[in-house]
Structure formats: structure tokens, C-alpha cells
Design a protein around this nucleic acid. Structure first.
Lengths: 229, 229
DNA sequence: CCAAAAGTGTTCATGCTACACCCATGA
DNA sequence: TCATGGGTGTAGCATGAACACTTTTGG
């Protein structure tokens, strides 16, 4: 490799920061940690880490997500880069933000304790370090845009879920109620759900049918054309 | 500033690369340059530059755009970061991509010569260095998504333009013809155009009325709700 | 038998699509 | 006067929004 022509240029610390969304009860929440090192040690923060030598940025984001959740193959997408000169009080750091969606039922609670991580409803986010509030806000916007045309909401639910539950999720994301008749009709018409022959008991006496996401059908459809919500 | 806790981390070269779109005749084009330094000197490339000390990333993109076009206050938006380990053959470089829209009538041709820059129709892009082809593709996608709901197409036109010309622009972006009756109706109904009392002569005998973009009206509308195309 | 949540169908308004003719003018 | 591109309106269709009642069953 010939590095000669690049040698005199300024090198910068590059971090990845992850906005991790989960769906608990009726609330969309974000997973935050108590920062474990200076500066701003002990304050609430997004989970992040520096990009290492020989490590791609997506790889770095995956590593960071794995560190905190113990999960592999999390749904994850790059948001954008944040690079104001003084965004980090301890020096020049460019942060590449990722947002991730996880199914809250299967992740490692042990790791959560180690990192002093906590789920916060989006309406009750505490003060965050640096520009992390801004990253979180942008992630929320992007999630809405993305969910409107792409079936990624399912990433926030277990493989089997009921329609009322799916509706609660969309209501949490958009912070607005939907009409259950219209919602069901729309969802069924998209042809991306399989109705199972099994009911969920417990949240109602009648019981609601379970559905699963049919990704095969989705792939056959012209992506991004149909509006989901 | 206390840098102690960050000191042992790996620092990386960060570049910004700009995908610059322009509208010429009936074609959407991208501005490419002949790369002026090694590696890959003399090959076609996006215009880019390294992020400097004390310079924010948006600032860096503006600087790069100014260098090539001589224009200030160009419409510009961050696309995303590209950070695969071996994307640059000469070492680890993370690139933050920006796409820019410029009105082709008022930019500096002199600078174009100095950089050996050339406008290429999107259907005739030559081989590009590194992953620049990928950046360009992604920019094209993003432009379509963005233009569908935001009136940024006007950035590609002079302040005064005719409806047939605007239609040609949209047709170029979406690579598909529109019905002129429906297109006009839709555009007029959005209430973001001012019809001027002046006609463009030359492209037809009857002449077409000039319009200008009314950004004031646009700001009063609930953004991002209305679909433009 | 009653309370609580699940499930379903119809109507109306709106917006999108398709489509054909007259207008103004320079040559 | 004619060729060229500019400009407009209508009817059918699909989609989204509003809205109320029946079903199931555990307690």
C-alpha cells in the first residue's frame, strides 16, 4: 500500500453510537447506558465505541450492539455522521450514528446490568451527553419515515404477534391512535402476514390470533411503493 | 481539553465526497473530476477532500463544493458515511458522502477547467475510483426519495422556469414520462409556485409562462405530508 | 350474564389516472 | 396557413377516513 500521498493529513477519532429501540408494553423505548469513562463519566449516553483498526464501520456498530445486548444479527441501519468540531468535549471525534431495532424478549439482561443500561420511554429521556439528544431525535424521525414504507416494525416484535399488538406498536411509533378496522384491513391487504391457527390468551377473554411476518411475500412485492401507514 | 481517556485510540483519515447533480437540457447529470493525485491519479472520481483540523464535516463539504464550483450556499445534504476497511486502495479512509444540487447556469466554468471536471449524464457514468460508483447510486436513490416529498427540485433550476421545463426535470429524475395535464394540475394545486406575467420564448412559438418557487408558501404548509410526485 | 377485547363491512370524500382538443405564434 | 409546443377539464377508479355492531369467553 502506498500511503505517501495521504501522509500529511489530519486523522480523527471515529466513533459509532447506537440508538437502540425496543417495544415494551405500549411504549417505544430507547436503551441508554451510564457512561463508564471520562469525560462525562456516569452520565446517560447512547451506547458507542471507537472504530478500530481493520474494522469497518458497520462491523464496529455490530460489535457495539453485541457488547450491550449479547445478540447477533440485530436489525441495524446507518443514520448519518455527526461531525461538528466541538461535539465531544474531550477532543475531535466524529460519530457515525446507527439505529437498531430489537425484539425485547430475547436479549441478555446480564449485560444490561454490567453496562448499567436502562430502557427509557421516548417521552422521558434524561439529559444526555454531547449531542446524543440530537442523534436520538433524528433516529426517531428516521424510524417513522422508514416504517411508513418498509416492514421493519416486525423487528421490534417477537416472531409471533397479534394484530392488536402490532397496532399498539405503530401507535407508539407515530404517537397517534389508529382505527382498528382500518388498520387491520390495511395490514391484511398488504399480503405480508401469515395468520396462524393459534390464539394468544391473557390480554383478552376472546383471544387474538397470532400472525407471523411473511418476508418471502414481501420480497416478491415491489418494494417501497406501497405505503404501510 | 482532557484528551487522556481517548489517547490510545486509532485515528482515521476522514474525507468528504460530493455527488453534484445538475440539469442540462433534458438530462440529469453528475459532475465528476479527473483525480489530481495518487493513487488512481487521472481516473474519474467524485470531488472530495479530507476533513481538516478545526473543520466540521458540513463545513468541509461546503469547502469542497466551493472549490469546484465557485458557488456559495449550494443546496447540500449529507447522504451517509462509507467506511469499509479497504474502500480506498491507499489506506484507511472513511468517506462521508454529500449530495448537492446546483443550478447549472451560474457556476464557474474556469474552476471546472482547472479540476478537469466534466458533466456526465447518469446513464453514461464512466468507471469511477474506489466505491464512488456506489456513492453515486445511493445519491440517485436518495434524490428520488427526497424530491417526492420536498420541493428541492427547484434547486436544479434557475429562479424563473417554465412548467414544461419543471416537468422535464422530474422526468429526468424518475426516468419516466408524466402526463402534462396531470403534472400541471398537481404542481399548481400545491400552491408553492408563483405564476409570473412573463413568457419564455424560444422553445416554442406560443411561449410558456415563467414560474418562480414560493418558499414562503411552502413553509406555511405542513412539510413532508404532501406528496409532490 | 356481564365485562372486556377481538373482529369485521359500508359509505363517503379525496386524489390519481387516463384521455383529446383548442390556443398562440413564428416561420 | 401550418407546424410546433403550451395549456386546460372531465369521468372513472382506487385509496384512505369515518363510523357501530357482533362475537367470544373468563370470571
Amino acid at each position: 500500500m502506498d500511503l505517501s500521498s495521504y501522509n500529511n493529513h489530519y486523522r480523527i477519532l471515529v466513533a459509532v453510537d447506537c440508538i437502540i429501540f425496543g417495544f415494551y408494553g405500549t411504549q417505544l423505548k430507547a436503551l441508554l447506558i451510564k457512561r463508564g469513562f471520562e469525560p462525562e463519566k456516569g452520565k446517560w449516553s447512547l451506547m458507542g465505541g471507537f472504530v478500530r483498526e481493520g474494522e469497518g464501520i458497520d462491523e464496529a456498530a455490530n460489535r457495539v450492539l453485541h457488547q450491550l445486548t449479547g445478540m447477533k444479527s440485530i436489525y441495524m441501519e446507518q443514520l448519518c455522521a455527526f461531525g461538528d468540531v466541538n461535539r465531544d468535549s474531550a477532543g475531535r471525534v466524529i460519530s457515525i450514528a446507527y439505529f437498531a431495532l430489537i425484539n425485547s424478549t430475547d436479549y441478555n439482561k446480564q449485560l444490561q446490568l454490567e453496562h448499567e443500561a436502562k430502557w427509557f420511554p421516548l417521552s422521558e429521556i434524561p439529559e444526555l451527553i454531547f449531542d446524543h439528544q440530537k442523534l436520538l431525535l433524528k433516529a426517531k424521525e428516521r424510524l417513522r419515515e422508514k416504517v411508513a414504507c418498509n416492514p421493519i416494525g416486525f423487528e421490534l416484535l417477537p416472531p409471533k404477534f397479534t394484530l392488536p399488538r402490532l397496532q399498539l406498536l405503530y401507535e407508539a411509533i407515530y404517537e397517534t391512535p389508529f382505527d382498528p378496522r382500518n388498520f387491520n384491513k390495511k395490514m391484511r391487504s398488504l399480503g405480508i402476514l401469515n395468520k396462524l391457527n393459534e390464539k394468544e390468551r391473557g390480554s383478552s377473554k376472546k383471544g387474538a390470533y397470532y400472525y407471523e411476518f411473511n418476508s418471502q411475500n414481501y420480497k416478491n412485492v415491489d418494494k417501497g411503493i406501497k405505503k404501510i401507514v
